[in-house]
Nucleic acid binder design. Sequence first.
DNA 1: GCTTGTGAAACGTTTCACAGCA
DNA 2: TGCTGTGAAACGTTTCACAAGC
Lengths: 240, 240
Amino acid sequence: MADDLTPQNQPDRGAPGRGEAVPAPAVRRLSLYLRELESFLRRDRHTISSKQLGDALNLTDAQVRKDLAYFGQFGHPGIGYRVDELVTRIRCILGTDRIWNVLLVGAGNLGHALLSYRGFGKKGFQIVAVFDSDPRKVGDRLGAPPQLVVQGMEQLAQTVADQNIQLGIIAVPADVAQDVADALVKVGIKGILNFAPTSLNVPEGVPVASVDLAVHLEQLAFRVSANQLATPRWSTNAAP
Amino acid sequence: MADDLTPQNQPDRGAPGRGEAVPAPAVRRLSLYLRELESFLRRDRHTISSKQLGDALNLTDAQVRKDLAYFGQFGHPGIGYRVDELVTRIRCILGTDRIWNVLLVGAGNLGHALLSYRGFGKKGFQIVAVFDSDPRKVGDRLGAPPQLVVQGMEQLAQTVADQNIQLGIIAVPADVAQDVADALVKVGIKGILNFAPTSLNVPEGVPVASVDLAVHLEQLAFRVSANQLATPRWSTNAAP
DNA sequence: GCTTGTGAAACGTTTCACAGCA
DNA sequence: TGCTGTGAAACGTTTCACAAGC
């Protein structure tokens, strides 16, 4: 997607601890496994096989087993995987077995929506500060109680230090996104989730995940067009 | 991505017209190339080399050339690519050389933000209808003028037909997302962009792109943890 | 000089197939 | 029987290297 790419921005690699390198696609699927397992847990299922887990996500059972095996031996032959155990393990692997303090830059429409999004909190991500460079927005109170007060960018360093913030979300227009990213890196933010439709230049060691909403629609348009046209229009390779 | 995947949901394949199959990663990057080229165009640059384009996106020049070559011969040896020409070509390939009518289901926080998001319109995606199953929201006027009136789900079929809507965006809670997807498929929607944190089951032939906001933060958390821990905690493979 | 387009090699990922265990 | 974990084979993608053209 990458992006990565879901349009993922940086060429990322897995985390080779002491052992083998983990393929990036496997790490991406780990999040999906976790989501599915949590849903299984809510439905009071106690064990799950690689086949069941794979079917839910349109993956093969072998793929599921191999992905999980990169991180350890979590399964029980003849039984499958114990759901609660696997959930705990994957959370630990992904680093979501603890609370992450997150800041948001950009108090526009998207910023508002992100601030109110329940999905973050459920996964242990707490947005604890909001910034905007527009003086008219600074001082506004946002979100559900306890509300957050929009701060000016000059307070970034102090707030990041005071609240031990490690992750930053960029929800500003494309033309200022790089400046914001630079500022975040400067104050020691460890990872950036970028919603601005532009690629960011950051030092190695600061991971960036980019989500370009329009790009996803574009990919959809391509696939729909491909479905509709037996012979794609672009296959006419006109000579220059 | 992507991961897709960016956590992309369905295993997708490129569009093999008459020629070779196009790798899905190449199609994902095509969107990024277009974004970068449009930015180049705004800065009045007329030509661009595969090296320059690659550098902007952290890709190799060979990668850029190979990706573009899947779709035709767009370059000029010794010169590079003409920016305006390439923009036109890629838009045609992706299917964004025309207007797409899009509907939105879910008038919550995220729905509001998506409706107000300028990035869609710039790429030719027009949200022309909004639906919500909550009777209290039906009838509300949303977005910038000309505002859209929130419709009940029972009006879906009629509106899709009347307005020639081909794409649908799902921005509802996870537990009703599948029902909404089923409804969209039933009325003939050709592609779905899903923001609900759940995997969708749809018939083959209806492409789905999924964007799970929390998953992207999760991936970031993993990479930040990997940076910080010399030896990942999960490398302790305790025996069961 | 510069650049593209492309076959071939290198690399990475997924699938297969089966040993081993409950 | 049913299931996992895993080496090996199959497949797909990226990189290399260079012929051809401006």
